[in-house]
Amino acid sequence: MSASLVELHDVNFAYDSRPILKGINMSFQKGKLIAIMGLSGCGKTTILRHIGGVLKPTKGYVKVDGQVIHELDPQGLYAMRRKMGMLFQFGALFTDMTVFDNVAFQMREHTDLPEEIIRDLVMMKLHAVGLYGTQELMPGELSGGMARRVALARTIALDPMLIMYDEPFAGLDPISLTVVGELIRRLNDALGATSIVVTHDVQESLKIVDYVYFVSNGAIIAEGSADDIRASGEAFVKQFVHGEMDGPIPFHYPGNDFNTDLGVHA
């Protein structure tokens, strides 16, 4: 049995009394690239926030590298987070720092490396995402795709064992999309890390991932390899993968009956 780096056991979570996650069980194996898919607002990002220890499950637990996240003290949690990297939806680059300072941020905060070594490391990371030469630019001067790649370089600055991606494909043009997708796969294999991609971009992610969890309404409704998902007979997965207009997710908002409200009587 190959070791799993991250394990979610019967995780439940509710905002006030509104349930977001209902008994999620997941297991992420070391070295794999796993996608969590589902509609916007189905709780995908919430799962990432549980793994990062930002949120605490109301029931169940999240285990990373053998430790239950919500039982760690602040020091332990920070030590754990240093081994993780997270790419935010729109990059979340620090807008008041240059590209260089952004990538160097964690090295400066967490290590005592001399400035020359930090320089070399930053250049290596920027080279890995194909943006060597942009170090003096400010984030505002970058295109969306480039900003995403700089954020990716920042995420892998300390060679994390676990990389999380929150909607890495959102708002990218088709070329940047392929580049970012390819980078995610390559970095995962080069660093020997485990990657979790939260996305609703089915076609792009099915090309690169090893395993997929399908989430709807806070519960897992399907899981399997990319091929399993493509071939799935589950109605919701079919509608989602093929982008059909009507299916288990109705086109119409479940309001009052339209004809009744218009006063048309049968």
Binding site: G52, V54, Y78, A79, R81, R82, M84, M86, F88, Q89, F90, A92, L93, F94, T95, D96, F105, Q106, E109, H110
Partner: peptide, 25 residues
């Protein structure tokens, strides 16, 4: 405005997840 925008663009969250305390930093 600066801190609000840092929060809106998830920079504060990013910092927190990079194990850097945003209140201190």
């Amino acid at each position: 405005a600066e801190i609000g925008l840092m929060k809106a663009t998830e920079q504060i969250d990013a910092m927190e997840l990079m194990a850097v305390n945003p209140i201190a930093r």
